[in-house]
């Protein structure tokens, strides 16, 4: 791997500095650094940020490769300045077992444009009834630390409480999509004057507030 020397970047938009990168790590930060073997990036006028991280990407693979793959999503992420993408579990099959998350994780690694971090489903099949293999996913190679049923919010308070308690044992977090499913059945658009005029059934903003 080639070493990289970034010259005159504005770190977080504040102080100007050079950054030397060796073997994939930041090894030096300072003024007027030099390295004979490094590729030099003139970053004067540019702002250096830590690589962007997206907690909410739908990569569609496995099962939805017609719309996106781990590779095309990784490319889109790289273009957008991202270095880590968290992949939502609503694939087919759903990412509710160690097998699926390991497959997604290794594919991301093989492509090598961003870190692909699978998000595990909270419940089996995202059906909201039984807990998914949270522990097995957490302890797998994919090292899953975020669990979510995303578009199918866990509606059963008991399951949700158990999931929150259980996830603690693995230092994991549960992400809940704010939506009350009963209030949004068939809803098409914001419940506003615009939806009323367009004849689209309204999605009351209270549906997010209640959850």
């Amino acid at each position: 791997m080639k070493n990289i020397l970034i010259k005159d970047a504005s770190l977080l938009g504040e102080t100007s500095a050079d950054l030397l990168i060796k073997d994939g790590k930041i090894t030096e930060i300072g003024k007027a650094l030099s390295a004979s073997d490094a590729e030099v990036i003139d970053a004067s006028g540019l702002v250096a940020l830590p690589g962007l991280v997206d907690l909410h990407t739908h990569m569609r693979e496995p099962g939805g490769e017609g719309a996106e793959t781990i590779e095309t999503a990784s490319r889109a992420g790289a273009v957008g300045g991202y270095t880590t993408l968290f992949a939502m579990p609503n694939t087919n099959p759903v990412a509710d077992t160690a097998g699926v998350v390991e497959q997604v994780y290794s594919k991301g690694k093989e492509i090598g444009l961003v870190d692909v971090q699978p998000i595990g489903a909270v419940t089996k099949g995202q059906l909201g009834q039984e807990l998914a293999d949270i522990g097995l996913m957490a302890n797998s190679v994919a090292n899953v630390r975020v669990f979510s049923d995303d578009g199918f919010p866990v509606f059963d308070s008991l399951i949700m409480m158990r999931a929150l308690q259980y996830a603690k044992s693995f230092d994991a977090v549960i992400a809940q999509h704010a939506q009350d499913p009963r209030l949004t059945e068939g809803a098409q658009a914001n419940a506003s004057i615009n939806a009323a005029k367009l004849g689209l059934s309204g999605w009351p903003n209270v549906a997010e507030r209640i959850k």
Binding site: I21, I26, A48, T83
Partner: peptide
């Protein structure tokens, strides 16, 4: 998501975006 600081510190993985 992954308990990392992402502070652009020496020793960190070189994940950097130039804007």
């Amino acid at each position: 998501g992954s308990h990392q600081a992402n502070n652009l510190d020496i020793g960190d993985s070189a994940n950097i975006t130039l804007i």
